[in-house]
Nucleic acid binder design. Structure first.
Lengths: 111, 111
DNA sequence: AGGCATTATGCTTGGATGAACATATCGCAA
DNA sequence: TTGCGATATGTTCATCCAAGCATAATGCCT
C-alpha cells in the first residue's frame, strides 16, 4: 500500500496541474505542440484545447506559436510559462517529499 | 490563487480517500448509512456502493450493519475501520500543512 | 397485521469527458 | 506550384461514471 497525491493551482477554477506541466515540458523540449502531443499519447486537438483553456483561465499567454514556414511552424514557451512551470515543479516536488514522509510516519513499515 | 491537493491510499487500485473518510465519519456520528448519505447529499445507493467497493479492495470489513429492528437497522464502524480512518486523517492533515507551507515558500505573497 | 426506517441490490438514463474525424490556413522548400 | 508539417477550430461519436428509479427483505413497534 502506498500514498498517492495530486496537487494543482486553483483560482475560481483549476488553473495548472500535472497534465499541463508535462505538456509544457514536452513542448519546450520538442518545439511543437504536435510532437509533444504524440509523445504524451494525446491528440493534438486535446493538447491544444487544454493549453487554450489554461491560458484563458490564467490570463497569461503560455506559448508563442508560429504557423507555416521552416518545419511547418512550431511553439515555444513564453517567459511567464517558464516561470510558472518552474514554480509548479518545485511545489510538486516539496509536496511529494512531504507525502512520502507523512505516509512513513503514519503507516510505518506496512505491507 | 491557491494550491489544492488530493491524497489517497492506493494498492493496485485506489483504496481509501477523502470521500470514504467523510462518509465513515458521518456514519460513525449518525449510526446509519442512510442518514450519512443524506447529510453528504449523495444517494444511499452511491454511499452503499462505495463502501462495498472499498471493503472489497481493502479486504477489510468496514461496517457492522443491522437490517430491521429498532429504528429500522443501522451501521457501526468496525475497529479496523476506526483505525484506518484515524490514520488517514492524520496523513491528510500532515499533507495539508505541507502543501500550505510549500505554496507559501514557492509563491510567496501572491495575488 | 401493518407501518416504518433501514440495509441490500439491479437496472436505466443522463451528463461530462475524451477520442476521432474534418477542414482551413500558413509559409518554406523542392 | 505543389507538397509538407504545423497551428487553429468545429463537430460528432463513443465511453465511462454518477444519478436516479425500482424493488426486495428485515425486524421492532403500535
Amino acid at each position: 500500500m502506498q500514498a498517492r497525491f495530486k496537487v494543482w493551482l486553483q483560482g475560481e477554477k483549476p488553473l495548472f496541474g500535472d497534465g499541463m506541466a508535462k505538456l509544457l515540458e514536452a513542448i519546450d523540449e520538442l518545439g511543437s505542440i504536435n510532437q509533444a502531443a504524440a509523445r504524451l499519447k494525446m491528440s493534438y486537438r486535446q493538447a491544444w484545447g487544454r493549453i487554450k483553456e489554461s491560458e484563458e483561465r490564467l490570463g497569461v499567454k503560455l506559448l508563442d506559436t508560429k504557423v507555416g514556414g521552416e518545419s511547418g511552424g512550431g511553439a515555444r514557451l513564453t517567459g511567464e510559462a517558464r516561470v510558472l512551470l518552474q514554480k509548479y515543479c518545485l511545489l510538486r516536488q516539496k509536496v511529494e517529499e512531504a507525502v512520502h514522509e507523512a505516509f512513513r510516519q503514519v503507516f510505518g513499515e506496512q505491507k
